[in-house]
């Protein structure tokens, strides 16, 4: 198929590549350089210091928030990815004929407004919210459950709803390539239930599952709107809030914010690689 010289191809790849280089590559590099500067009052002074990173590593509050961010990210994705896997499996193999309709519904929920869904969860989970009111009407509880809102739980409940459609799509598309006959054959050879998934289907859809995990984990741990809206001021703060505050709050400190951003990204990549390795060892013959 490749009969042409890549010259024509390079010309076609050029514009988007340039766009990425200028508006994605260079900004990230500038951000990285900035993370070694210092903030003095309202001025940012060019410097080559590791102080911002050390501040992030030694401050008790920051460490606590880092740990909470990783935990929230991991718990959320370990709930979201299995849910998405089961959902994708049912859509693909059990309700095959309704699969397309279900997929459209999932897409609609994905695009039903990011901010709006977060806000709606606050309405549902709030102390005077729908869930508490309903439970009190039913007589199941006497007092509203205050821990539902402004807590890490609220953050995770909201994130699961936001990320489930996103995690489902890659798993669904890798399952689309798995033929039903393959599963039948495995079943005829005696693989059933858990074993069928662990030794046959999961290894086949592993790329989709890893992608789903990466999306869920990075987006959960990198979000700042959800913790800002439903996480409250103390118990639900994530690194995203700390970073955002350095850029659009009073007492802004861009270099520190930049350093925090690179630290959390490095941490995310590290945790992701370990998790994928674990996943690989589970999905084996």
């Amino acid at each position: 198929m490749v009969t042409r010289l890549p010259a024509g191809s390079l010309r076609q790849l050029g514009p988007a590549t340039t766009f990425y280089a200028v508006f994605f590559g260079i900004p990230l590099m500038i951000l990285f350089v900035l993370s070694f500067w210092t903030q003095q009052g309202f001025e940012r002074v060019p410097d080559l210091t590791l102080r911002n990173y050390l501040d992030g590593l030694t401050d008790r509050l920051y460490l606590q928030v880092f740990l909470r961010t990783i935990l929230v990210g991991l718990v959320t994705s370990f709930i979201v990815v299995p849910l998405a896997y089961v959902m994708a499996y049912l859509m693909r193999f059990t309700f095959e004929r309704r699969g397309q309709l279900l997929l459209t519904l999932v897409l609609i929920s994905l695009f039903s407004g990011y901010l709006v869904r977060i806000y709606a969860w606050r309405t549902i989970l709030g102390t005077g919210g729908l869930l508490n009111t309903a439970l009190m009407h039913l007589g199941l509880i006497a007092e509203p459950i205050t821990a539902l809102i402004f807590s890490p739980w609220a953050v995770m409940i909201t994130l699961i709803g936001l990320l489930l459609p996103l995690a489902l799509l890659p798993i669904w598309s890798s399952m689309a390539n798995v033929s039903r006959d393959h599963l039948e054959a495995a079943r005829d050879l005696g693989a059933n239930g858990w074993r069928l998934h662990r030794t046959v289907l999961l290894p086949m859809v592993l790329p989709g599952v890893s992608t789903a995990f990466a999306i869920a984990f990075v987006l959960a741990a990198g979000d700042f709107v959800v913790p800002a809206m439903v996480g409250g001021t103390s118990g639900g703060t994530l690194v995203g809030n700390l970073i955002a505050n350095q850029f659009r709050g009073s007492g802004a400190d861009w270099p520190l914010g930049a350093a925090l951003a690179f630290m959390i990204m490095a941490l995310l990549v590290f945790v992701y690689l370990i998790s994928v390795r674990l996943l690989r060892s589970v999905a084996r013959w």
Partner: peptide
């Protein structure tokens, strides 16, 4: 690899992309 590279911005948290662009335009 090129396709993967072109999908990279979708793998970076929007927050990081936002602050990187803010810093870039300020520069």
């Amino acid at each position: 690899p090129l396709l993967t590279a072109s999908l990279l911005p979708a793998a970076v948290p929007a927050l990081v992309m936002g602050i990187a662009l803010a810093v870039f335009f300020t520069a």
